[in-house]
Amino acid sequence: MSKRKLDIFTKGFFKENPTFVLLLGMCPTLATTTSAINGLSMGLATLFVLVLSNIVISAIAPVVPDKVHIPVYIVVIATFVTILQFAMQAYTPDMYKTLGLFIPLIVVNCIVLGRAEAFASKNGIVDSALDGLGIGFGFTMALTALGMVREILGSGSIFGWKFISGDGLLVFIMAPGAFIALGYLMVLFNKIAKKN
């Protein structure tokens, strides 16, 4: 893999991390990270839509008239989201129930439309796929990390394996804990990013 391609792939991990640096897609980040596994699943669901929509959009972008490009992109994204929705309903019904409304809401996740607009519409298919994968991984990592922190503090378990008996600090699996945990994680991320 050439240096440039590697850069496209890895920039989403750290330098342009969608959650911590670009501050995009906050709704699913806060809402679905009540446990590490939920965060991971939501991240992977977004990754799936991101990669496929990036590929298709980079392929059709040259022939789409400029004035209607946003509606066309939204339709493409919504199609993949609905496909994902059906697949999850059929094969992972429990996860679908947990993530609920936030699966269809991937359509309005600014990360997906943002990458389509900023990257896929201007680059080739391979680069766009790599970009989608990289940003998707960055998003998944952030969601899993936040889910892990909230699960450890909130229910005293990690990936469902419980290491204390009884309850944790319940506030962390409720709404306020999501904001607070993300705030502190962001501080930590800034601190590390500053050092490098």
Partner: peptide, 14 residues
């Protein structure tokens, strides 16, 4: 990059 917009190709594309 993107194709030119006129009513015909916009409607057709959508």
């Amino acid at each position: 990059m993107a194709a030119k917009s006129n009513l015909l190709n916009m409607a057709l594309c959508l």
